[in-house]
């Protein structure tokens, strides 16, 4: 049985930058368009294929963007392996919020958390307020990746989620090498119960 490793990814960013739309775009082929019904867009699960035939499963947690919910964010990024922080390229203020999120994650989230920054709404290039180079330079300075994305056209969406998948998987592999599981030292009559177990690959693309 091939096993799929699961990772928790949290999406952060100011309200209206398009966090939820990004995630939905990524998972789009999951939705059935012929029927009008309520869509829960706050949790999305999707398998991603990495180089070498490695498949990983992303559990993507959407977070509330409104300021009144700001203090609740730590509940959501607790134990997250990766974070996608989105901003709106047409709103300079939303990029400043990215920097605040990064600071917060660096001080409060898991020390190994991987970060990808999404400069969203890149279909509105003419209204751009943040220079693409500045955004890339900032991302490089904090060891994160940066992508221009558009939830509307789909540009950069798969790429940014594939990159976060690649990064969290790399961290997992590094940690697994550094901390190999201890063998059963007390004889064959003692069973070992691990904290998690591998899941079967899914046929569908997401939840």
């Amino acid at each position: 049985m091939d096993s799929v490793k699961e990772f928790k990814i949290v999406t952060l960013g100011e309200g209206r930058v398009g966090k939820t739309s990004l995630t939905l775009k990524f998972a789009r082929n999951e939705f059935h368009d012929n029927e009008i019904s309520t869509v829960q867009a706050n949790f999305i699960q999707k398998d991603v294929q990495l180089d070498g035939g490695i498949q990983v499963r992303l559990n993507i947690w959407d977070t509330a963007g409104q300021e009144r919910f700001r203090a609740l964010a730590p509940n959501y990024y607790r134990q997250a392996n990766g974070a996608v922080i989105a901003y709106d390229i047409t709103d300079a203020g939303s990029f400043n919020k990215v920097k605040a999120w990064v600071k917060e994650l660096q001080s409060q989230a898991d020390k190994d958390i991987s970060i990808v920054i999404a400069g969203n709404k890149c279909d509105r290039e003419s209204e751009r307020q943040i220079s693409a180079q500045d955004a890339i330079d900032y991302a490089n300075s904090i060891n994160a990746a940066h992508f221009n994305s558009s939830a509307k056209s789909g540009k950069g969406v798969n790429e940014l989620y594939t990159e976060i998948a690649r990064r969290v998987y790399a961290v997992h592999q590094k940690n697994a090498k550094a901390n190999p599981q201890l063998s059963n030292s007390r004889g064959g009559r003692r069973v070992r119960v691990t904290n998690d177990e591998p899941q079967k690959p899914k046929n569908k693309n997401c939840c």
Partner: peptide, 22 residues
């Protein structure tokens, strides 16, 4: 869904995001 049965609304408006679910 029950509330909106037989009423006209687009799917876009029935998307529950993180702010709304909270």
């Amino acid at each position: 869904d029950d509330y909106w049965t037989d009423k006209i609304i687009s799917e876009e408006h029935l998307m529950v995001d993180a702010d709304q679910i909270l």
